[in-house]
Design a protein around this nucleic acid. Structure first.
Lengths: 345, 345
DNA sequence: TTGTAGGCGTTATCAC
DNA sequence: GTGATAACGCCTACAA
């Protein structure tokens, strides 16, 4: 494997000059630069990234720490980040915290050790996620999807409260009365804020929130299933449910199906997050969708900007959600004929 | 940031001894080892991975190059690999070739430059994917999901031909006659082998393959949609279709739905790959499922084994597929009453 | 079992 | 604008 010295010898220059050409520094004689470039191609020289990393005390890696790689929301998000990374010359290391603070902590330690150029993280916990060591070491960090407390970092979110409020208001206006909420772990801000939006919708209409209809689960299919089963065991059971993420919704729908209940006749469903291939699911599901890919892109751009300028004040970008009305939440039987019609375009 | 020398000084030993303790080498006096360990914790020392990488001329990264990060098959596969990587002390760098040979080539060059410890790849092309430079540099490579020609590498596959044969035989036995096939790009072995299995099913029954019912698409939803639309424009249109991957199946189902055709009454559907949340889709889809997570684990284990022993002969592991009979392929009207019953458990 | 010496390939610093 | 020199932090001989 040729080194920078082999190139230098062949081009008749010194090693630092080769380095300058390789890094595109302007202060090099064009003639020498050209000699260097041809020497590089002749020898088939490739820069040793490892040596470069050591010398510069930094890699060209971004660590993206998501809560669940198998959740399509995060996959789409990562795709957005990945595209920005490619455009700006970075690699994306994808890590999966599994909503597990220990696993997450392990990855954060590793990211620090590898001296990654930056970290994008959906914190497993608002308070429990320890970003301080990274920040103290000067590693740029962007929080995504969820807030991180006590750490002034760039953040990309959606307006969870407003999105949830809109979804639940839609149910209230449809005539539903016993509207349950299946939300995520309390330590994640998404779980908390979507629950807050749920409550807000009631309050604005002067309605009372029934705490007995609120469940906290783990953002997974299984958690959604259990929470829904638990809710359906009540008498009377809820006539509608707002589920705060996509995977829990799948579980909730299974539970409803297992009891041979009909959506929306027996129970209406509105979900936060997109359900991939929602158009193939019957009935189709009303959702609050987030611009996942855009969130990832935005986080990537903020990270790239912070790497360029460490001093900049941290910013928080809030992207909008969209309520997609579909069959699972059509208005109650009394007024359904009218409402359903309006859902067909 | 303390270095190995700071630790050495504090522990009253030399730097190499610290290194030995850190790397768990046995030839260290237990007393000294203990002194080193406490010095490490007292100083909050963390090994500089970059320097280590340079010295060892290797990283602790695995590059996993998949054809489509947003395809749940690959996501599940990556989870399997990731788990093995964690168990063996590696990081997974996830790269997305997007079935694009140029993008793939770019990542392969980068992997070489970063001196990753190993590469797991689902080659975008049987012949076009250039693994030679990696292999010449001594980088362990495992091909996954698809074969790579001209490169003797460990490989993890499923029996695509048998799986496809089984699926199509099922349709033939159900009384379907004009069975179309939507398969992937010819350069990917999965596309070719599943098509071969389709043809094999016909031949074994002495039936004739109608080339006009075969379409090649890009393994994406859109490709499946277009191919299906094209097939449905025929008169008479096919009475069944075998689609060779999950995303194309989604597209095909959309196309069928757009024409207001009924599955399986107007056209039966059998898909290769699992459809996530297949149980929520109506009608439920008959699928040939692959053990995606296991494939990923297996690839990870082969990679770890090859890193330990470069000399070992390359092996190919073939995992089985499973045909899941569901509603979308129940036997034709003439005999449906009987067959449907057998599908309900 | 432990320490000494040297180098991995690059880039930063400083003269010139 | 260019080159000599040193250093990044670690690990692997080899010698003791």
């Amino acid at each position: 494997m040729p080194t920078i010295y082999d190139v230098a010898r062949r081009a008749g220059v010194s090693a630092p000059t080769v380095s300058r050409v390789l890094n595109g520094l302007p202060s090099v004689d064009p003639v020498l630069a050209e000699r260097v470039r041809s020497a590089v191609t002749e020898l088939g020289y490739r820069r040793n990234t490892l040596a470069r990393n050591l010398r510069r005390a930094q890699t060209t890696l971004w660590a993206v720490l998501v809560s669940d790689v198998e959740n399509p929301f995060f996959t789409a998000l990562v795709r957005g980040t990945e595209d920005v990374a490619r455009e700006t010359g970075y690699w994306v290391v994808l890590c999966n915290s599994d909503e597990d603070l220990h696993k997450e902590a392990g990855y954060l330690v590793a990211a620090l050790g590898e001296q990654v150029a930056g970290v994008i993280i959906s914190p497993a916990s608002e308070r429990g996620t320890r970003l301080a060591p990274l920040l103290e070491a000067g590693t740029p960090v962007v929080a995504v999807d969820r807030k991180a407390r006590g750490a002034p970092v760039d953040t990309v979110l959606v307006d969870n409260r407003a999105g949830a409020d809109q979804a639940v208001t839609h149910l209230l206006e449809g005539g539903y009365e016993r509207i349950a909420c299946i939300t995520g772990p309390q330590r994640a801000t998404t779980g908390a804020e979507r629950l807050a939006g749920y409550k807000q919708a009631f309050r604005r209409r002067g309605a009372v929130v029934d705490q007995a209809l609120i469940r906290h689960a783990n953002f997974r299919e299984k958690g959604g299933y259990q929470a829904m089963s638990n809710l359906l065991a009540r008498d009377p059971h809820p006539d509608a449910v707002f589920v705060t993420n996509n995977l829990m919704t799948v579980g909730a729908l299974e539970s409803i199906s297992d009891r041979n209940l009909d959506v929306p006749d027996d129970i209406a469903v509105v979900a936060f997050d997109d359900i991939p291939w929602a158009h193939l699911v019957r009935p189709t599901i009303t959702t609050v969708t987030q611009p996942a890919y855009q969130i990832g892109r935005c986080a990537g751009e903020l990270l790239a900007a912070r790497i360029r300028n460490q001093a900049r004040e941290p910013v928080t970008t809030v992207l909008p959600t969209t309520l997609h009305l579909r069959e699972s939440s059509s208005a109650r039987a009394s007024s359904r004929a009218h409402s359903v019609a309006s859902f067909h375009k």
